[in-house]
């Protein structure tokens, strides 16, 4: 899947440039709060519970300083992606132990039969392998320049 296609599932209202979180629980709560604020999605408790269950299954911090919290829930009707940066970094139980500074949160409905979110996850993970790009994303001044860096690779 093309990264521009993936970015159609997010918006400026779903971009948190400076998430503040002292630990993993607070980071997840902040991400869900951002999702609720940036959309008309309701029922944050359901989404948070799903994300916590997913993290208990195994940490989604699988990239260098990057996490991809994700899952399916009835609380959303379409694939929705929230992007957040945590400049100070937060312990998200990453395998390498490094703090997580960048989040791509993907929330999909159960009836996402085309598996859009798995394809989107794969595209994001592939895109983010470039160390120079990661630096650009952490330094991008706003949502537009963040997305421009993503699409320009």
């Amino acid at each position: 899947m093309d990264i521009a296609e993936v970015l159609k599932h997010t918006s400026p209202d779903l971009f948190i440039p400076d998430l503040e979180a002292s630990d993993k629980t607070a980071a997840l709560a902040g991400l869900v709060e951002g999702l609720i604020t940036g959309t008309n999605i309701q029922n944050p408790d359901t989404i948070l519970q799903m994300l916590q269950s997913r993290e208990n299954l195994g940490s989604t911090a699988v990239g260098p300083g990057i996490a991809f919290p994700h899952g399916r829930t009835l609380a959303v009707q379409r694939l929705t992606i929230l992007i957040a940066r945590c400049p100070a970094g937060v312990d998200f139980d990453s395998e390498d132990g490094d703090p997580t500074k960048l989040f791509f949160m993907l929330i999909a409905p159960p009836q996402d039969t085309g598996h859009q979110y798995i394809k989107s996850l794969a595209a994001l993970i592939d895109c983010i392998q470039d160390a120079d790009l990661r630096e650009k994303l952490l330094a991008a001044g706003d949502y537009e320049s963040f997305c421009a860096a993503m699409t320009e690779g």
Partner: peptide
């Protein structure tokens, strides 16, 4: 709702676990 979300996660892990593990999860 929480139970169904969890069942969906379990089903996905069992049916597509290899695909997710291929992505690093």
């Amino acid at each position: 709702v929480a139970l169904q979300d969890m069942d969906e996660m379990l089903r996905e892990t069992e049916e597509q676990g290899e695909e997710f593990e291929g992505l690093g999860f």
